[in-house]
């Protein structure tokens, strides 16, 4: 009984503190194919600036994966970026697509969130016959499922 209560209270606290600001998806060439804000907290940018942001991040990621302080020959590149006001988590798939999640600082379990977004992408974007690979994502099913996954956590 005690164990059960402990577990449920932990899940509850996680759900309450979860604030995801935005999700960005970059294709393997560094182009922005998806950008969506979920909660207020990030500065609004023009669409051109979002493209510049994506391209810049792509470049920085490429550099960080080339230089590594350890003896390893290759590095996974930049994964987490933390600042006073936000934390950014980057997840690169084996095919080179990047998922960026912006959230509140000290947000836990962002790797779980990013994996789930990847799963939704694999389901509702890649299995959609009307989606052209590497092109901007306009999929109603993906939008809907992403909203129902991220929104209730705020």
């Amino acid at each position: 009984m005690f164990l059960f209560r402990l577990r449920s209270s932990r899940v509850f606290s996680l759900a309450v503190t979860m604030v995801v600001y935005a999700v960005l998806i970059l294709n393997k060439a560094g182009g922005l194919i998806y950008q969506r804000d979920f909660n207020p907290g990030l500065q609004k940018l023009s669409s051109n600036d979002y493209l510049i942001l994506a391209g810049t991040f792509h470049g920085v990621h490429a550099i960080t994966s080339q230089i590594s302080p350890t003896n390893e020959t290759s590095s996974s590149g930049l994964e987490v970026l933390e600042s006073e006001n936000f934390v950014m988590r980057c997840f690169q798939t084996l095919t080179g697509t990047k998922f960026l999640i912006f959230a509140e600082p000290r947000q836990q379990n962002l790797d779980v969130v990013v994996r789930r977004v990847y799963e939704l992408y694999a389901d509702y974007v890649m299995k959609n016959p009307f989606y052209q690979i590497e092109m901007p994502i306009r999929s109603e099913g993906f939008d809907r499922h992403l909203t129902s996954y991220i929104k209730p956590h705020q």
Partner: peptide
């Protein structure tokens, strides 16, 4: 399940 029809083809149902 995984199909989202684009707006310009809104008439279509697979």
């Amino acid at each position: 399940t995984y199909i989202s029809v684009p707006k310009e083809m809104s008439q279509l149902n697979c």
